[in-house]
């Protein structure tokens, strides 16, 4: 499995004018790792759940904002 967010640590200067954001992150959603959707992928149990998630397949769902948000974007 893959993670939906990646983290990196930008250089922090002692002379930065603003309080530094030490950890930055970016989104890496499922389409980057699937390439071609296999046949018979499990679907959400109800149509309503699928609508609310924006996709029929839980494995294509990408949460935003990052649910495990660390101390970024202050």
């Amino acid at each position: 499995m893959f993670t939906q967010y990646k983290y990196w640590y930008p250089y922090v200067s002692p002379h930065d004018p603003c309080p530094p954001i030490k950890i930055k992150s970016y989104s890496t959603p499922p389409q980057l790792y699937i390439a071609f959707q296999p046949i018979g992928l499990p679907q959400f149990p109800t149509a309503k759940e699928a609508l609310m998630h924006g996709t029929l397949w839980p494995q294509l769902y990408s949460p935003y904002p990052n649910p495990q948000k660390r101390n970024e974007k202050s």
């Binding site: 389409q31 959707q37 609508l51 998630h53 924006g54 294509l60 769902y61």
Partner: peptide, 20 residues
């Protein structure tokens, strides 16, 4: 807006499949 964002992801996957 989160729904619309998810649709971009699904569309991206479909275009990637079209390339394949």
């Amino acid at each position: 807006l989160k729904f619309l964002r998810e649709r971009e992801i699904v569309h991206s996957l479909r275009f990637r499949e079209a390339v394949e």
